[in-house]
Structure formats: structure tokens, C-alpha cells
């Protein structure tokens, strides 16, 4: 079923554009150029983070942390390999994507661990960064309960990803 969603959605978008007399190819091309800018924008974060994550993994510290946290992770139904992803996620989108793609590569994209890592990435956001951008833009110094609520939402997403993958896949 999920195989139909994306091709069908693409067709709907293109057809609706054609019906509304939009220059579909022109709009497509302009958007793609914008996409290239996005790629350029995220590359520094990915490069710094993937290098740092590779170094951390080589040093053995990630294994130490995951082994220590394994009992808690198992109790929550989350593979311990996904813990570094959960820890990094609120701080850096590039870092989370880097470590997530490493987990997916090492465990296989269709493995339980690989899938849970993918769902974790899809269901959470870079909370610290988002809060910083918005509060800086508005000049709000005290965001009070915002961080607490955002981190609860992230924690819920991580725990749910373990449950959802087992339940739905």
C-alpha cells in the first residue's frame, strides 16, 4: 500500500498544477534550484557531525554508552544502537541524520533497528535549534516551559517509534 502513496501524490501535484494552468516544468525547475540551496546549507552540519560521530565511534565511547544504557533501552523497547541518535537529536539535525544513516547502513535499512532509527528521525525535530531560532527572532528571552514540553515530545517520539515499528510493520 505504501508503495502507491508517493507516486500517486506526485501525479496529483503535477496534474493539479496542469489544470490550474501553471507552467509545471518551470515551477519544478525553480523549486529544484531552491533544493540545491538547501543541500548546500545543510552540508557543513553534515560534514562536521559525520566526522565527529565517526571519531566518537572509533574511540569506543559510543559502545561504552550504549552498553551502559542497554538495560534501560531494552525496557523501553528501543535498540541500544539508537540511543546516540536520541541523545544527539535535540541538538543537531545534521548530527542526527549522520548517526541515523550510520545505524541504517550498519544494521540494514529493513532490519528492526534500521527501521526504528528511521522512524525516530522522521518523528522528531531539532528542538534546541528550533526554539533558539524562534526566540531569537522574536527577542523572547524566557521561553519558560517550551523546552520541557519540546523534549517531552521528543522522548515520546523515541519511545513510540519502537512501539510503532513492532506494531505496524
Amino acid at each position: 500500500m505504501t508503495n502507491y502513496i508517493v507516486p500517486a501524490l506526485m501525479l496529483v501535484i503535477v496534474l493539479y498544477g496542469a489544470l490550474k494552468k501553471v507552467d509545471v516544468f518551470g515551477a519544478f525547475s525553480d523549486g529544484i534550484k531552491e533544493g540545491l540551496k538547501v543541500c548546500k546549507g545543510i552540508f557543513p552540519a553534515i560534514l562536521v557531525m559525520l566526522t565527529a560521530v565517526s571519531m566518537l565511534r572509533a574511540s569506543g565511547v559510543i559502545d561504552i554508552i550504549t552498553n551502559l544504557a542497554a538495560p534501560i533501552c531494552n525496557w523501553l523497547g528501543i535498540p541500544e544502537e539508537c540511543l546516540p541518535l536520541a541523545l544527539l537529536r535535540p541538538f543537531t539535525g545534521g548530527g542526527a541524520l549522520s548517526i541515523g544513516s550510520e545505524i541504517i547502513k550498519n544494521n540494514g535499512p529493513d532490519s528492526l533497528t534500521g527501521r526504528i532509527a528511521a522512524v525516530m528521525l522522521g518523528a522528531s525535530e531539532t528542538s534546541f535549534y528550533t526554539i533558539a531560532v524562534y526566540s531569537a527572532y522574536l527577542g523572547i528571552k524566557n521561553t519558560r516551559y517550551t523546552l520541557g514540553a519540546a523534549l517531552s515530545a521528543d522522548a515520546a517520539a523515541f519511545i513510540m517509534s519502537g512501539i510503532a515499528v513492532r506494531l505496524l510493520m
Binding site: 506526485m10 490550474k20 501553471v22 515551477a27 519544478f28 523549486g31 529544484i32 531552491e34 533544493g35 543541500c39
Partner: peptide, 14 residues
Amino acid sequence: ICLWSGLLEIMNRS
């Protein structure tokens, strides 16, 4: 990323 930016631009204009 580029593909979906393109599709979003179509959605914006239509």
C-alpha cells in the same frame, strides 16, 4: 530534497 522542493513549488504556484 531537490525533487520535493520542486514539487512544493508546483503546489505553491497552483
